[in-house]
Computed example of a mutant assay.
Amino acid sequence: MSESSGLILVTGVSGFVGSAVARALAGRGCRVRGLVRASSSPVNLVDFPGELVEGDVRDSDAMESALRGVGTLFHVAADYRLWAPDPEEIVRNNLAGTQSVMRAALKTGVERIVYTSSVATLKPSDAGAVDERAAAAPSEAIGAYKRSKVVAERLVEQMVAREGLPAMIVQPSTPIGPRDVRPTPTGRIIVEAANGRMPAYLDSGLNLVHVDDVARGHLLALEKGAVGQRYILGGQDVMLGDMLAEIAVRMGRRPPRLRLPRAPLMPLAWVNEGLARLSGKRDPFLTLDSLRMARHRMFFSSEKAEQELGYIARPWQEAMGDAIDWFRQAGMIR
């Protein structure tokens, strides 16, 4: 790629998508600088293929320092939580981080930016898969995380239109695969199901994609994307029951047969959230927002990225196999 002679900064390289993007760039011969926080997990930083600098995306001085000498920026870092004791903290983190990064990029003269948004900024439709035209307003987003991604994406679009920010936007659907170190909410479902701890499920659906295909889509957006445009980077639409059946087959277990209604689970989700607030421990597995989201099938179309960028995603079953293999190696699956 033409940017291989310049320095590229990737934020969030200790995370799931960020680590995949950094490795994809290094595989193309690019010079990569990765931004990490002091508290970042070291798992995905072992044998990092480039230079590491420490900083917080909300710190404008740290961002300007990290961007010195950088021609291309991939802003991947985000507060990816579907629940927090103070939900507005997620909104503040993602909006402030995006604003700080983009302001620093303008100030330091970055030439090209790929901003990692999410299909969380789109309105789902029970009529079928939606595309980039289904942009949601903040009031239409379910939960703090989705609202945070909407307001951050709108900020980027405004800076493109008003200040000439040279950014294009990619919208990953639901990545799965190796290096899901946290793990993500979907990764937690995979781990729980693989360990035989999901005897029942909700009638919902999602769009699954291999994280390395998402990373390759980021590079394609840089090479062929247009400033100000949004590109969904998805895979295939999958019913949750089919996803759990695939996991069961790979683990030699019987797939769950019991399909649960959402309404009776609302009180349990409320209790789970209350216990999580009191204990201060890990995010609850079942939350009110996750149940509200499950009312819709999160199905999306990547046709625009396929036609304009040449984007292709492998079958979701391959992604699931890689995810299970990695979780097993990491000791999360027995």
Results as ranks from 00 to 15, higher is better:
residue 56 D to Y: 13
residue 308 E to A: 04
residue 175 P to Y: 15
residue 184 T to K: 12
residue 254 R to A: 03
residue 96 A to L: 10
residue 307 Q to R: 14
residue 19 S to A: 05
residue 122 L to V: 00
residue 225 G to K: 04
residue 116 T to S: 01
residue 37 R to H: 05
residue 215 A to Y: 02
residue 60 S to V: 11
residue 208 L to M: 13
residue 325 D to N: 15
residue 266 M to F: 15
residue 326 W to R: 00
residue 214 V to A: 02
residue 44 N to P: 06
residue 97 G to R: 00
residue 203 D to Q: 08
residue 324 I to W: 05
residue 309 L to T: 04
residue 296 H to D: 10
residue 222 L to S: 07
residue 279 S to D: 07
residue 280 G to H: 02
residue 297 R to S: 15
residue 76 V to L: 06
residue 7 L to R: 10
residue 278 L to A: 10
residue 81 R to M: 14
residue 7 L to E: 09
residue 201 Y to L: 02
residue 165 L to Y: 09
residue 122 L to R: 07
residue 220 L to R: 10
residue 109 G to N: 05
residue 92 R to L: 11
residue 84 A to K: 08
residue 163 E to G: 13
residue 312 I to E: 10
residue 281 K to F: 11
residue 321 G to N: 05
residue 149 K to R: 02
residue 255 P to T: 02
residue 197 R to I: 07
residue 327 F to K: 02
residue 169 I to A: 00
residue 317 Q to I: 15
residue 160 V to S: 08
residue 70 V to R: 01
residue 162 R to D: 13
residue 43 V to P: 01
residue 13 V to L: 09
residue 138 P to M: 08
residue 243 M to P: 09
residue 71 G to S: 03
residue 240 L to D: 05
residue 239 M to P: 15
residue 119 V to R: 12
residue 160 V to C: 05
residue 197 R to D: 12
residue 193 A to I: 01
residue 296 H to A: 09
residue 60 S to M: 10
residue 21 V to F: 00
residue 261 P to C: 03
residue 153 E to H: 09
residue 296 H to Y: 11
residue 229 Q to T: 10
residue 326 W to N: 10
residue 70 V to I: 06
residue 119 V to I: 15
residue 274 G to T: 10
residue 4 S to Y: 04
residue 297 R to H: 03
residue 276 A to L: 09
residue 162 R to S: 03
residue 58 R to P: 04
residue 53 V to C: 08
residue 39 S to L: 13
residue 246 E to P: 10
residue 176 I to N: 11
residue 122 L to I: 06
residue 1 M to R: 09
residue 111 E to Q: 14
residue 12 G to I: 02
residue 298 M to P: 07
residue 231 Y to I: 14
residue 180 D to L: 00
residue 8 I to R: 13
residue 91 V to K: 11
residue 18 G to R: 09
residue 282 R to W: 11
residue 246 E to Y: 01
residue 317 Q to G: 11
residue 262 R to F: 14
residue 277 R to E: 03
residue 315 P to R: 04
residue 116 T to K: 00
residue 73 L to F: 12
residue 325 D to W: 15
residue 102 M to Y: 04
residue 109 G to H: 11
residue 219 L to K: 07
residue 266 M to N: 15
residue 33 R to P: 00
residue 109 G to W: 15
residue 123 K to M: 08
residue 249 V to L: 14
residue 45 L to A: 04
residue 134 A to S: 06
residue 202 L to Q: 04
residue 175 P to F: 00
residue 191 V to N: 08
residue 69 G to D: 06
residue 146 K to E: 14
residue 70 V to N: 12
residue 284 P to I: 01
residue 187 G to Q: 11
residue 115 Y to F: 15
residue 236 Q to C: 01
residue 199 P to T: 01
residue 74 F to A: 00
residue 284 P to G: 14
residue 85 P to T: 06
residue 296 H to M: 07
residue 229 Q to K: 13
residue 20 A to Q: 12
residue 195 N to C: 15
residue 268 L to S: 06
residue 52 L to V: 11
residue 172 P to C: 02
residue 203 D to L: 06
